[in-house]
């Protein structure tokens, strides 16, 4: 369920006096509240820095950092960095999907394979992929290959596990019914298997896509490979504090945009699913 979804219901108020502000119940009032809150936060930061309570050498004025970000947005170097990160993100994610889906399908549809691989997967999955950064550096160098390798590895587990458990969670009555009616396999695949595993796959993809961005930036930061993480490392080591904040801000924006896009895609893809039907505004 989306975090932002608020159930409209009558508030339980003890006193009968009129509330000072209306409750944020619809999209428009939430938007207004959100804008006010964001401005308040930025304003507070601006005030703390400009009154020297926070040292400007460490934390620049929000307006200065935002202005630097706008400046950066006109430079090709900035976009090359963003491109490098997103390229690692996309390639790693794609590779993980290509590996995880067929593998998950094999394991999820075969009880013996499932039993055999379960302990192995359960053991390998919690291992943080960042632990393998040194190995990646040694074997694949400090370029795109290392980044893609680490992203693929990190994205593999959520995708694989969601595929396996999605397949295993298919209602056995459905498959048994399809079998007794001798429904052809291809039709079974399209009308039973696919709708059943799609919500699982969507969850797996959402987790993998977020993890991929984090791992891509992490790899760049530790290894120093080109990308927004590499730019951040460069800004840090050259003491360019304002640029550093602007870049971190940009990284956060990329994260937000990614989250919003993923939500839209998921809602589109799973319009028919009960959770999404109810949540629709």
């Amino acid at each position: 369920m989306s975090v932002a979804a608020v159930k409209d219901r009558a508030p339980v108020t003890g006193s009968r006096r009129k509330p000072l502000l209306p409750l944020p119940t619809n999209f428009r009032s939430r938007l207004i509240y959100g804008i006010v809150g964001t401005l308040l936060t930025l304003g507070a930061a601006q005030l703390l820095v400009s009154t020297q309570i926070i040292d400007e050498r460490f934390v620049p004025l929000p307006t200065t950092a935002l202005a630097r970000l706008l400046e950066l947005a006109w430079t090709p170097v900035f976009w090359a960095g963003v491109g490098g990160t997103m390229q690692g993100w996309a390639m790693g994610l794609f590779l993980a999907i290509v590996i995880a889906l067929p593998l998950g399908f094999l394991i999820g549809t075969n009880d013996y394979l499932f039993a055999a691989t379960r302990p192995v997967v359960e053991f390998l999955r919690p291992i943080p992929s960042v632990a393998l950064i040194p190995v990646a550096i040694l074997m694949l160098g400090i370029g795109m290959e290392s980044k893609v390798f680490l992203v693929t590895l990190a994205c593999l587990w959520p995708l694989l596990i969601q595929t396996i458990y999605g397949l295993r969670a298919i209602d056995p009555t459905l498959t048994a019914t399809a079998q007794s009616f001798r429904i052809p396999r291809r039709l079974q695949l399209r009308s039973i298997v696919l709708p059943a595993i799609l919500p699982y796959l969507a969850t797996g993809f959402r987790i993998a896509a977020t993890v991929a961005l984090i791992v891509a930036v992490t790899a760049e930061l530790v290894i120093g490979s080109p990308g927004i993480g590499g730019d951040i490392l460069l800004a840090q080591s050259s003491g360019a504090v304002v640029t550093l904040y602007a870049l971190v801000f940009a990284a956060g924006l990329i994260g937000v945009i990614l989250n919003v896009l993923l939500q839209i895609v998921e809602r589109r893809l799973l319009r028919w699913h009960p959770t999404y039907r109810e949540a629709a505004p």
């Binding site: 932002a4 944020p24 009032s29 939430r30 509240y33 959100g34 804008i35 006010v36 809150g37 964001t38 308040l40 936060t41 961005l213 984090i214 891509a216 930036v217 992490t218 930061l221 530790v222 927004i228 993480g229 951040i232 490392l233 800004a235 840090q236 550093l244 904040y245 870049l247 971190v248 990284a251 956060g252 924006l253 990329i254 994260g255 937000v256 990614l258 989250n259």
Partner: peptide
């Protein structure tokens, strides 16, 4: 409702990018 956008933003920053800060 006021601070949801700020929280969403802070959450979306790839955590490791904050290390240099």
């Amino acid at each position: 409702a006021m601070f949801a956008p700020v929280l969403e933003f802070l959450r979306a920053i790839p955590a490791v990018a904050l290390i240099p800060l």
